[in-house]
């Protein structure tokens, strides 16, 4: 455990006075390591809130550079960051918000050759990616490495999220089995996304990560939270871990493989 400085005690005072967090919860946050995969629509709010919350170490993964069309929703990047690698742009904002946080950047895209080694070093993972091959790859890696993670997906005015605790709760493949064929499902670049919807879902993912770290409340295990911002209806669909799941079931995967690259969001 670590001793908080006066500056930190003041900075985190609104967490510390929360009965369910307290100084112990804030210490857990400060000692935790969270990996944010994707520094885009979901990754932006997640990275900002986790840095502000004082997560001790935050890894951020993205191989892309900031594009003008990102700025409508990717709130960690500014107009001056266009053409700057997203991970560097994100790191600068996170450190500006909270210099106590250690930010590790991975300026690359994850695949079967590198994902397990990276994921293994973290306590919790955030899926903020924009394509199904990555979403299923993250699920596989987290199940194999036994690291809990938050799945997130958004489209148009809607979002969905679930939290996965490998071996204990249902995984993404328990619900959706395997990636849809290329181009079968509209994407944000082809169908659009309301910028604020990315913020709504990303902040839910950040809250799930912090709940998990502190050990408070009921994570989104064994349920998919979906919402439609047009009607502002939120709904939980409950399910159980599938014993026959292709990934986490009794005869689940033993090694990591790439899914067929489905480049849905080629270049934003």
């Amino acid at each position: 455990m670590r001793e908080f400085s006066d500056e930190e005690l003041e900075r985190y005072s609104r967490h510390i006075i929360l009965q369910d967090v307290g100084i112990e919860g804030q210490e857990k946050i400060a000692n935790s390591k969270v990996l944010v995969i994707g520094a885009g629509g979901l990754g932006s709010p997640v990275a900002l809130y986790l840095a502000a919350a004082g997560v001790g170490e935050i890894g951020i993964v993205d191989g892309d550079v900031v594009d003008l069309s990102n700025l409508q929703r990717q709130v960690i990047h500014t107009t001056a960051d266009v053409n700057v690698p997203k991970v560097l742009s994100a790191k600068a904002k996170m450190e500006a918000i909270n210099p106590n946080v250690k930010v590790t950047v991975y300026q690359k895209f994850l695949d079967a050759s590198n994902i397990l080694d990276i994921v293994k070093g973290y306590d919790f993972v955030i899926d903020g990616t924009d394509n199904f091959s990555s979403k299923f790859l993250i699920n596989d890696a987290c199940v194999l490495a036994n690291v809990p993670y938050s799945h997130g997906g958004i489209l148009r005015f809607g979002g969905q999220t679930m939290t996965v605790k490998p071996k204990e709760s249902a995984c993404y493949a328990c619900v959706f089995d395997s990636p849809p064929p290329a181009n079968a499902i509209p994407t944000c670049s082809s169908a659009g996304i309301l910028g604020a919807v990315a913020g709504m879902l990303g902040t839910i993912q950040a809250a799930e990560a912090l709940k998990y770290i502190v050990g408070v409340g009921e994570p989104l295990y064994n349920r998919l939270l979906t919402f439609d911002a047009k009607t502002m209806n939120f709904r939980n669909v409950n399910f159980k871990k599938n014993p026959k799941c292709r990934v986490c079931g009794e005869h689940g995967i033993k090694e990591i493989k790439d899914y067929e690259a489905v480049v849905c969001e080629a270049k934003l």
Partner: peptide
């Protein structure tokens, strides 16, 4: 009915 949502960036 649960729909695929692949966006995030």
């Amino acid at each position: 009915f649960l729909y695929f949502m692949g966006g995030g960036a």
